[in-house]
Simulated assay, not measured.
Amino acid sequence: MNEYQLITDTATLETFVDELRSADFVTVDTEFMRESTYYPELCLIQIAGNGKAAAVDPKADIDMESLLDLLVEDEVLKVMHAAGQDVEIVYNLTGKTPWPLFDTQIAAMALGLGEQLGYAGLVQQMLGVTLDKGARFTDWARRPLDQRQLDYAVADVTHLADLFPKMLADIKRLDRGSWLDEDMKRLTDPETYANNPDKAWMRVKFQGRNPEALGRLKALAAWREREAQEKDLPRGRIVKDETLADLAGHPPKGQQDLSRIRGLSKTWASNDIGARLMEAVENAAPMPKSEMPDKPKGRPRLGADSALIADLLKLLLKVRSKEADVAAKLIGRAQDLERIAAGERHDIPMLTGWRYEVFGKDALALVEGNLSFAVKDGSMVMTEI
């Protein structure tokens, strides 16, 4: 699939999309810029299917509706690599996420090809092709794009079209389709991408559980989110997280105090944005009990014995992931191993679904004294007690 077209008008796009509707699958990638905006600035969509490929220019005078409908409405399978940011862009444009979806990075972990393997590495490993990444620092918002930049962008979806059938065959051979279903549903959950100002406080690190301070944090984070959305600026360009947390914990008594707060411009002591910040502080209500956050489920404090158990669980994870030929990171995180070692059992992904069958049940057997390590013929084996 060496030929492709650059689409800059609505009629050509609609014709191309109609041809894709009969495809078994389409491969999709995007190029975007987000350094100076709140929302990622979509600069190019690359898509391939039925042996044809195109780069669609959303910055041209073009109606994208037909393509967006294909991504979120049609039953044709969408194949992407490390799809999180691409899914976010589609959600921002439509309020929906692409479905059905196959993420080749997650599939690579399920096939034991590496921990979050990069696209170039995956193409090299499975297709024996070395990608030219010389255009990866392109400013995709600038026009015109030259031939090399377009070739570089479209190559991602053309190689993806060759990768997917091979990966799908391996997934079917190993009967791991159900492994991917759970992760794909999580990846395409619209809640992951919704920028709800009233929930923005949950992303800010804050020490303490004082209802008044948390109420101010919620009000300030919502205010910042709306300011950032309205101005289309990164939220950190409005106020950084650490300054927001400091304002919540130590609220200024009046707007004039804003000139003495590190991280804020002195002009905020008298301008409109400073007044809106103070309005958020002054109108903040204590956080109700129903909204109080759970105590953080960070890494538990482990005693000497529990720390040793956690080390054994990490060893077990290495053994089981090697036996199953799956990336250990797809099964679970070190933090969750420590929670199991500390006696926790609830809300731990590796204790449910396929992860439980591959690892979780043995992890519980180990901590409950029903499983032990042994060395046989120079290899690590597990022995039931």
Rank of each mutant, 00 (worst) to 15 (best):
Y4G: 03
L6N: 07
I7D: 02
D9N: 15
A11H: 13
E14L: 00
T15L: 14
L20G: 02
A23W: 04
V26C: 12
T27L: 01
F32A: 10
R34E: 07
Y39R: 15
E41V: 12
E41I: 01
N50W: 03
A53V: 03
D57G: 02
P58M: 01
P58D: 06
M64V: 08
E65S: 15
D69Q: 15
A82L: 06
G84A: 14
V90Q: 07
T94H: 04
G95H: 06
K96T: 00
T97Y: 08
F102W: 04
D103W: 04
D103Y: 04
A107T: 07
L111E: 10
Q116T: 14
L117Q: 08
G118Y: 06
L127A: 09
V129C: 06
L131N: 08
F137I: 05
L145I: 05
T158R: 12
A161V: 02
A161Q: 09
D162K: 14
F164G: 02
L174E: 14
L174T: 13
W179E: 06
L187V: 08
T192Y: 00
A200G: 06
A213V: 00
K218N: 05
A228E: 11
Q229T: 14
K231R: 15
R235Y: 09
I238K: 01
A245R: 04
D246T: 13
L247M: 10
H250S: 13
P251M: 09
P252C: 05
D257R: 11
L258C: 08
S259L: 03
S259W: 00
T267A: 15
W268I: 04
N271L: 08
A275G: 09
A275V: 01
A275F: 02
V281R: 03
N283D: 11
A284R: 07
A285F: 10
A285L: 15
K289Y: 07
K295Y: 07
G298W: 03
R299M: 10
R299A: 12
P300G: 09
A304P: 00
L308Y: 03
L316R: 03
V319S: 04
R320S: 11
S321P: 01
K322L: 08
E323H: 11
A324F: 03
K329D: 15
L330N: 01
L330A: 13
I331P: 12
R339V: 07
A341M: 06
G343F: 06
E344G: 00
P349Q: 04
M350W: 00
L351M: 11
K361T: 15
L371K: 06
F373D: 06
G378D: 03
